[in-house]
Simulated scan of single mutants.
Amino acid sequence: MEISVTGLSSIDNGIGSWDLKTGTEQLRFKQCASPAHGLTAVGDKFLAASQLRNASGSSGSIFFWSWNKPQAEVKSFPLESITALAANMEGTYIVGGGASGDIFLWEVSSGKLLKKWHGHDQSVTCLLFSGDDSLLVSGSKDGYVRVWSLIRLFDDIQRQQQGSTFYEHDFNEHTTSVTDIVIDYGGCNALLVTASEDCTCKVWSLSKGKLLRNIIFPAAINALALNSYKHHFSMLVIKIAKFISVP
């Protein structure tokens, strides 16, 4: 069964899951206060969502649900409020971005914090693994988009030599908060597409580390999607109030 999972607009409505074939709702995961990009599927194992607040008023928690139970089964409490959350395709790692700009990488099986580093000067708004899990892309409220090599992240000697600038690419063309990121990891033709509250959508070359195209819209872009012909600009689809084809 193919399932669509969506964080609903109202905090009181929680998370809904629907059968894509029939359109019927399968389950409602309640009591969720997740921010935008704070919800992720951890492989086919379970759902995880960062919580900006809870009943006691404290912050910094992450709730975990199995696919067939509406109540959160596990709750964890990171060092700070997590504003963005993502898992790799296999569900072996979860990465969270904090309000401070710090990024945390946990091992799912043990729950161990493997790495923590300062990724941005303002809160992290988006996180995304590449298709082969070799790269992590982060977006921030400061408008910056940074590409991190997971191999280099675990190379402590190289990190010490490079200081704080150990990212692969540092894209700083957006003027306000980054709202979404999509990636087509196609080897030498790999593309990164970013959206921002500055009403632009930008297409980047991951291999060359440069801006390929800047698309200006009359409203801020909140969500992005690439169709099956990912690398074709003519087939790029942006979700605003309705679908708009980009020529």
Rank of each mutant, 00 (worst) to 15 (best):
M1C: 09
T6E: 12
S9N: 05
G14P: 02
G14H: 01
D19H: 08
D19G: 03
Q26A: 05
L27W: 03
C32S: 15
G43L: 07
D44M: 07
K45Q: 14
S50R: 01
S50L: 02
Q51R: 05
L52Y: 00
G57K: 03
S59V: 12
S59M: 02
Q71R: 14
Q71E: 15
S76A: 13
A87D: 05
N88C: 07
G91F: 08
V95P: 01
S100K: 08
D102C: 07
F104H: 10
L105C: 14
L105E: 02
E107M: 01
S110Y: 10
K112F: 05
L114T: 09
K115R: 15
K116T: 13
V124F: 05
F129I: 09
D133Y: 04
S138R: 04
V145P: 00
V145E: 00
V145A: 00
R146I: 04
W148Q: 01
W148E: 01
R152E: 12
L153A: 08
L153R: 03
L153V: 10
F154G: 01
I157Y: 06
Q158P: 04
R159P: 02
Q160L: 14
Q162G: 02
G163V: 10
T165M: 12
H169I: 01
E173W: 05
T175C: 04
S177R: 10
S177A: 15
S177Q: 12
V178T: 09
T179F: 04
D180M: 04
Y185E: 13
G186C: 11
G187N: 08
G187W: 10
L191Y: 05
T194F: 04
E197K: 14
T200Q: 07
V203K: 06
K208D: 11
L211G: 03
L212M: 12
N214S: 15
I216K: 13
I216N: 11
A219V: 12
A219S: 14
L224N: 08
A225T: 13
A225D: 09
L226K: 08
Y229N: 15
Y229G: 11
K230R: 15
F233P: 00
K239Q: 11
A241T: 10
A241M: 09
F243G: 10
S245E: 11
P247L: 13
